[in-house]
Structure formats: structure tokens, C-alpha cells
Design a protein around this nucleic acid. Structure first.
Length: 435
RNA sequence: UCCUCGGUAGCUCAAUGGUAGAGCAUGCGGCUGUUAACCGCAGGGUUGUAGGUUCAAGUCCUACCCGAGGAGCCA
């Protein structure tokens, strides 16, 4: 069939009130009465109700209208008019209707479904209004990430996905075969960003990250997207400030561009997001431990915060907060040491309130070659794999710092949804590789 | 890997050890303004799999399979 390139997208429908236009889309809902059909059509940019009145259209068209099924693709032609009763405020009095392709027994009905059922049909689930809103918010966050760093003079430097070794050596990697040798899917672009920082000063990468952890929680994916800035001649304080301003910017852009989706489709309490203004409350690990104990929460100095600890701590705040200077023993080998206290690392996490937890993790890197070599050995990592990384300390070593932000965790937090799996178009989980 | 919970109609869920049900979806009928429309009727089942206990098992026992949430790990 010929494509009408003059057809109207629904998000522009208000500009065409009183005009005759052509719409193309999918049937979201068809309500049939004796002399009236209400067909709600969705084209990805919006929804529009078409009204088909018996007697005002020919019998063949009336028959087509009466038998429309959910998600059939259709073309409608008719006059657009404002109407208070129509969703979106505008509706079409349809004069022509063509079924482009019928949809039979669409599996996702307007009623409730379980997570497994929906995830098995993720390719169709994406069409629903909530998932559509999440796609839009994710897209806005992706754009905002690039805008933020670009406006501050950062250069995007893409990190490789295939890597010959563990970046951090602590978590499980996906192993693959690479022309006869072992390769791993990247779990972080950070080490490469350290190299990039010496080339462009302020670097960031943004891409997929893989963790083969057998996590079964709503806060973990095996494949997720992470943005990782790295800044030469920056210290821990600089990084906390950057992280706070970045966080504020991302949340701000989401509210600015999608208040309607957040308040409407997602039922998000936007007032909580409006409290996200830098600087955030900051507390040291020491203080955090003291605070946990003061709250009657047993926690021993030296351990990492578990999820319950994080939640307890987060209850003290109504906006994101920063915890810094964790014990070096629980952090990655490349983390710098606190000159004030050798037990501590120059690390920081940004945690979101309302139970969302850690969204950013990072800190200042160790720049001393001998220290790093010792750390690699201590962590049982193969030193030969880090030759190039040590070079960064051999040829003009420099203080630098950076962090990683999990995109899906930010999408989840901004949107107010419960589970990370809805924050990515096609989630990869321990028990899910498809669709 | 460990702990907890679950698996019954296409979907979401009920069902004291005693005839397997409802809502939605689907089909048919009704309704001139519906908003998850509403009203009536109908079809729809190897209760995850394999054993076992019992006069009798969706229900109790054992093993296994699948999934969810949490722990650990982290973004």
C-alpha cells in the first residue's frame, strides 16, 4: 500500500483542530455500541479517540469499525475537533477507516498480568502506556547525560566491550572466546577512562556493562548501562560536587520534560524529585556507622552497607545523600587512600531516598605506581594484564577521580517504579536472556 | 550458592482431605458519548512433573523442574 507521508502524528493533533487529517496507528481499545464506536488509536506519540457513527459512514466501514481488534494497525481519516469527553481533549469524527493489518488474540489485555508473563512478551509490553513512559524518560536521561558532560567540556571516549581481564577483579565476568583466547565482557570502562583523562582531561564513557553475578533482586541486571566520567587533577571533593550537580541536573531535566508522564502515567510524587538540589547531605562512613548504631541498628565498623543498612540510613533523609571514605578493604584495588587515615579509601557513594539506594559509586584513584602494583598482587590479579594501566603512573602520573552512575537505577528512581527490569527495553536477568 | 514464598481456565486469583470456581479476556446478544464502559448468555481445565499416603489429593508426604522476593555482590 502507498504510504501517505502527509499523515498526522497524534502529538500534533491539537494543531489540526477543525481540519481533516489522516492518522495511522494501532487500536488500543475499541468500544462498540449500537450506533457508535469509540476507537482509541495509539501511534507512539500519543493517543486519540476516533468516533465512528452508524449511518454517517457506509455499511462496509461500519462493519470494519465494529470488528476492530486490539493492536490492529489502522489508518483513519476524518475531522479533528476539541471535545472535553475525549482523552487528550481532541477526537476525530472518522469518515474513512482502513485496517492495514489485523491483530488477532493480542495477549496483553487491559487487565492485570504477572511479571513473568509480561517479560516473556516484552516486545509487545513496550507498547503499553507505562512502558512507553519509561522509554521516554530513559531517552531523556540519556540525552541529559550527554548534554551535561558536553556543556562542561567533557569528551566522550568509548570504552571497549571485549576486555582481556577483569577491571576490578572482584565480581564475576561473562567469559567468551576470542579467536582462541579468553575474553571477558566489560564490567566497567573506568580503567580506560583513566587513560582517556590523560588524553582529553575530562572524559566520560556511556555504554553497556556486564556482570555475571547471580543476583536475584530488583536492583540488579546482568546487562545494564553505566555512565563513567573521569577527571584529571580532580580529587574526592571535586567528584562529590560533580556527582551531586550531575544528579540534580538529570532529575531536573526529567521533571522539566516529563512532568505529565511522571504525575500521570507513572503516578510519581514529583515533589520528592523537586527536593533534589545540590549540595546533598554528606556523611563519612565513620559517621554513617555511628548513626546506624545510634538508631539501634547493629553494624560493625569495617563492613560494607547491606541493603537493610542502606535503607535505614536513607530513612534519615528526604533527598539523595553522599557517604564517603569507606574502609579501603571493601573497595576496589585502584581506590586512593585517605592520607588522614590509612584504613580509609577516597571513595564515595550517592544514595537515593525512598528505598532506591546506591545510584552512583566512585572516588579518587591511586596514582602511586608502587602502591598500585602492591594492590594488584594483594587482590590476586595478574600483573601482566595491568601493564598498560601501570604506564599511566609511569608516564606523568596525575591525581584523578571519577564515578559510575547506573542508568537503569536512575530511570527507576526518577520514575518511581519498583523494579529495575522495567527501566531497560529488553532486560537481561539471571533467568532471562530473551526476548 | 543460601533463605522464604509461589506454580489451578488465555490472564489475575479462589477452593476445611469430599461435585474445580470467580473476575477479566474471547464469542454471541443488548445499549447514542464510552473513558479498565456497562448488562445478559455461552464456550473454555491432564490443578508444574514423577512417585507416595488415603475409601477419596488442587489440598498431606518425597524428589525434581520453573519462577518471584531477599541475602551476598555491586551501578
Amino acid at each position: 500500500m502507498a504510504i501517505d507521508h502527509l499523515h498526522t502524528w497524534i502529538h500534533e493533533i491539537a494543531d489540526h483542530a477543525g481540519e481533516e487529517v489522516t492518522l495511522r496507528g494501532w487500536v488500543q481499545k475499541n468500544r462498540v455500541m449500537k450506533k457508535l464506536v469509540f476507537c482509541v488509536v495509539r501511534d507512539g506519540t500519543g493517543i486519540c479517540q476516533a468516533v465512528i457513527t452508524r449511518g454517517e459512514v457506509d455499511d462496509a466501514m461500519w462493519e470494519r469499525a465494529v470488528s476492530l481488534t486490539q493492536e490492529s494497525s489502522i489508518e483513519l481519516r476524518g475531522i479533528v475537533q476539541a471535545d472535553q469527553r475525549a482523552p487528550g481533549g481532541y477526537e476525530m469524527q472518522a469518515r474513512e477507516l482502513q485496517v492495514l493489518s489485523p491483530s488477532v488474540d493480542y495477549p496483553i489485555t487491559p487487565k492485570e498480568h504477572g511479571a513473568e508473563f509480561l517479560l516473556d512478551r516484552r516486545h509487545l509490553w513496550l507498547r503499553s502506556s507505562k512502558q512507553h513512559a519509561l522509554l521516554k524518560i530513559r531517552h531523556t536521561l540519556e540525552r541529559a547525560i550527554h548534554d551535561f558532560f558536553h556543556s562542561r567540556g567533557f569528551t566522550q571516549v568509548d570504552a571497549p566491550i571485549f576486555t582481556p581481564n577483569a577491571c576490578e577483579g572482584t565480581t564475576t565476568l561473562f567469559e567468551t572466546e576470542y579467536f582462541g583466547q579468553k575474553a571477558y565482557l566489560s564490567q566497567s570502562g573506568q580503567l580506560y577512562m583513566e587513560a582517556a583523562a590523560a588524553a582529553v582531561g575530562k572524559a566520560y564513557c556511556f555504554g553497556p556493562t556486564f556482570r555475571a553475578e547471580k543476583s536475584k533482586t530488583r536492583r540488579h541486571l546482568t546487562e545494564f548501562w553505566m555512565v563513567e566520567p573521569e577527571v584529571a587533577f580532580a580529587d574526592l571533593d571535586d567528584m562529590m560536587q560533580l556527582a551531586e550537580e550531575f544528579f540534580e541536573y538529570l532529575v531536573g531535566r526529567s521533571v522539566e520534560e516529563h512532568r505529565d508522564l511522571l504525575e500521570g502515567t507513572l503516578d510519581r510524587d514529583v515533589s520528592m524529585l523537586e527536593k533534589v538540589v545540590a549540595p546533598f547531605p554528606r556523611l563519612s562512613y565513620d559517621d554513617a556507622v555511628r548513626q546506624l548504631n545510634a538508631l539501634g541498628h547493629d553494624f560493625e565498623w569495617g563492613g560494607d552497607f547491606g541493603s537493610p543498612d542502606e535503607t535505614k540510613l536513607a530513612e534519615q533523609f528526604d533527598r539523595p545523600f553522599v557517604v564517603h571514605r569507606f574502609p579501603a578493604a571493601i573497595k576496589a584495588f585502584y581506590m586512593g587512600r585517605d592520607p588522614q587515615d590509612e584504613r580509609l579509601s577516597l571513595s564515595m557513594d550517592v544514595l537515593a531516598p525512598e528505598g532506591y539506594g546506591e545510584i552512583i559509586g566512585g572516588g579518587e584513584r591511586a596514582s602511586d605506581l608502587a602502591y598500585l602494583e602492591a594492590q594488584v598482587e594483594k587482590h590476586g590479579l595478574p600483573p601482566e594484564a595491568f601493564g598498560w594501566y601501570f604506564d599511566l603512573r609511569r608516564y606523568g602520573s596525575f591525581p584523578h577521580a571519577g564515578f559510575g552512575l547506573g542508568l537503569e537505577r536512575m530511570v527507576t528512581y526518577v520514575s518511581g517504579i519498583r523494579h529495575l527490569r522495567e527501566a531497560i527495553p529488553f532486560p537481561r536477568l539471571i533467568h532471562r536472556l530473551g526476548p
